[in-house]
Design a protein around this nucleic acid. Structure first.
Length: 206
DNA sequence: CACATGATCGCCT
DNA sequence: GGCGATCATGTGG
């Protein structure tokens, strides 16, 4: 069992002072691509001992379920690991890749529809290293998110939450997803969304 | 800057 | 038994 890790103290921030609000459940139940786009500019945060730690999401990828060869739920796979993807939108799905890195996903749509949005990169509050969360594994490491958090409800009162962006819309770039060359035709689908103005995007792929 | 490689282990076949 | 929704480091140009 992997112990709960602690977030990087440099990610300390105050969502309330920033006027950030949490989206309703309906936000997450929308089509996955819409959620993936809306999450660019939103904040992912974790509360530990009364303090909030987090960052502004700058890169996401949509994973479209049974028909998407790159998705863990491809072909309707339903194992213990993937089970959180079948939960109602607004839950968290975390898995371990390459034996050492964790990846965090925001589950979308209705219960039983196993689609999700991978959080690929975020930029921390002022003072945090620019590329501390420039990658899905680094994002989880910085926030201390592990498979122990898989299945959590982001829309409830739990320790991991999402805050919607306020107003300014990021200049969003689109590309194929990263690291899914094995996925047949799905490898070229334009399901990666990133903030063109951010220095924390994991890789520059047009 | 563009590759190439090793680390490391849970998951699925 | 093979292979990742990755990352840091090392080499060469």
């Amino acid at each position: 069992m992997i112990a709960n890790k602690r977030p990087d103290s440099r990610l300390d921030f105050d969502p309330r002072a920033m006027g950030l609000a949490e989206p309703s459940r309906a936000f997450y139940r929308r089509p996955t691509v819409a959620v993936a786009r809306a999450l660019v500019g939103a904040w992912i945060a974790r509360r530990v001992r009364g303090r909030w730690y987090g960052g502004r999401i700058v890169e996401t990828e949509a994973y479209l379920g049974p028909g998407d060869r790159a998705a863990h739920s491809w072909g309707g796979r339903r194992t213990e690991r993937v089970e959180p993807m079948y939960a109602e939108g607004g839950h968290l799905y975390v898995f371990l890749v390459y034996g050492m890195h964790h990846c965090a996903n925001v589950v979308t749509r209705a219960a039983g529809v196993p689609e999700a949005v991978l959080l690929r990169a975020a930029e921390g509050p002022a003072g945090a290293p620019a590329r501390l969360m420039a990658g899905p594994g680094k994002l989880c490491a910085a926030l201390g998110i592990t498979v122990a958090d898989s299945g959590r409800d982001l829309a409830g009162e739990g320790p991991i939450r999402i805050f919607a962006r306020r107003s300014r819309r990021p200049d969003i770039g689109i590309s194929a997803r990263i690291g899914v060359d094995y996925a047949g035709e799905a490898k070229d689908w334009p399901l990666r969304f990133y903030d063109r103005g951010s220095a924390a995007v994991s890789r520059l792929v047009r």
